[in-house]
């Protein structure tokens, strides 16, 4: 009865798995080989859809609704049973990608994600607990991942690498990047 996501999956532009998390998988998604098969289907279904930029799009697969976003060389999929509220799913996915953009301080791309996968893993863990949505607000998630209010302020890595793709959240991002670890 509680809103429940069934999984979040990140694939690269060749359909290779970068990250995936299944929440309380049904018996057909329990084994790793079935999950791989499922991911292949995700990839092939979504590549048939021409998305407008990085706007979320949607399709059905088996008994699931899948909301996804395409980036340059990476795609993020969020799926839940057909009974779930797709609009909620879309706004959760928006929040997740927004948080990732803040954390990576740039558009999401494979290289960044692979280099600092910890940020993505932590962010997703803060968004969803066993598929239950903890929070739908990118800012608070970024806060929790970076522990901005934690006692120890960490030296910033990549100081020069300022994002050229400024967005509406630039200000917020700067505040956070100051305390970004490493």
């Amino acid at each position: 009865m509680i809103c429940q996501m069934k999984g979040i999956i990140v694939l690269d532009n060749e359909g290779q798995n970068i990250f995936s998390k299944y929440y309380n998988p049904s018996s057909s998604l329990l084994t790793h080989s079935n999950q791989k098969l499922f991911e292949q289907q995700l990839y092939s279904k979504s590549s048939r859809i021409s998305t407008r930029g990085t706007e979320a799009d949607i399709f059905m697969l088996e008994t699931y609704s899948v909301v996804f976003k395409n980036y340059n060389d990476i795609a993020i999929y969020l799926f839940a049973t057909f009974e779930e509220n797709e609009i909620l799913m879309a706004s959760l996915l928006d929040a997740i990608t927004e948080a990732l953009e803040m954390l990576y301080r740039t558009e999401i791309d494979k290289k960044r994600v692979c280099e600092e996968m910890d940020l993505m893993m932590l962010a997703i863990d803060e968004f969803l607990d066993d598929g239950i949505i903890i929070c739908c607000d990118a800012m608070s998630i970024v806060e929790r991942v970076t522990m901005r209010e934690g006692q120890q302020v960490l030296p910033q890595k990549n100081k020069k690498q300022e994002s050229t793709l400024g967005r509406a959240i630039t200000n917020a991002r700067q505040a956070i990047s100051k305390s970004l670890m490493r």
């Binding site: 706007e55 949607i58 609704s65 057909f82 797709e86 609009i87 799913m89 879309a90």
Partner: peptide
């Protein structure tokens, strides 16, 4: 304008 919203509606 959003496919996700359309989908939820028609579904």
């Amino acid at each position: 304008g959003k496919n996700t919203t359309k989908f939820a509606g028609i579904k």
